[in-house]
């Protein structure tokens, strides 16, 4: 019953997720964080059983940390996406991770340096969003969602998303998605937490209690 929503805006990406920790008919918690930070400039929103969420996101995060220590630089967002996809695809035939994810990341430029010189340091850079499911399907998208909520909010995102949105406009679209879920979805999704990733890195926009963070 998890809801993960993500969309790109000019210079970054927003990810929103519900904060319920539920199993069967019982809700255990109303304030868990389903968006985990993988690197300073990448985050992963996950839906699925809580054990797999924690297990998979920590597995990826620790491996990316190891990559950075070994090679001195973090992987690009597309590298992270392909890494997640290949791990999910490999696990599929031997007790899969039951997670469907949205990966959001930010890169300074697709080409960081040319012949040792940095490319345009003033550029807002590129935010990118990837849809990756537990079977190893991966696709770069402008907006996306995971879970039952996709039945309701994809149409909202399709109507309202456009290239070059500001962060405020993107946040407005997310609240429209929440309103639709509140009105039409049988299962109460409660409060949504929102995070962003941009030039400054991953940050909380709205915490798991629904309080806006300045």
């Amino acid at each position: 019953m998890d809801s993960i929503i993500g969309l790109r805006y000019n210079g970054g990406v927003l990810l929103a997720s519900d904060t319920n920790n539920a199993r069967s008919i019982l809700v255990y918690q109303h304030d868990i964080d389903k968006i985990s930070q993988l690197t300073p400039h990448a985050m992963l929103g996950l839906s699925g059983p809580n054990c797999d969420l924690v297990n998979f996101s920590e597995f990826v995060e620790k491996n990316l940390t190891m990559y950075r220590l070994k090679n001195g630089d973090t992987l690009s967002t597309s590298g992270i996406a392909n890494y997640c996809r290949s791990e999910l695809a490999t696990a599929l035939r031997k007790g899969p991770f039951q997670v469907n994810t949205l990966l959001a990341g930010w890169d300074a430029s697709s080409k960081k340096t040319v012949n040792g010189t940095t490319v345009d340091p003033t550029s807002p850079g590129v935010g990118s969003l990837y849809y990756i499911d537990y079977m190893g399907t991966m696709s770069p998208v402008n907006y996306g969602c995971q879970g039952y909520c996709s039945n309701f909010v994809l149409s909202v995102l399709d109507r309202e998303w456009r290239e070059g949105l500001t962060k405020e406009e993107a946040l407005e679209i997310i609240s429209h998605c929440e309103q639709v879920l509140k009105k039409r979805f049988l299962v109460d999704q409660g409060v949504f937490g929102v995070k962003k990733v941009d030039k400054e890195g991953v940050g909380v926009v709205r915490d798991t209690n629904g309080v806006l963070v300045a």
Binding site: N71, L75, S78, G79, N82, Y83, S86
Partner: peptide, 12 residues
């Protein structure tokens, strides 16, 4: 290339 779908950094 198989794992990350991008070319390997030279130093690696």
């Amino acid at each position: 290339m198989f794992q990350y779908q991008e070319p390997i950094p030279i130093e690696q």
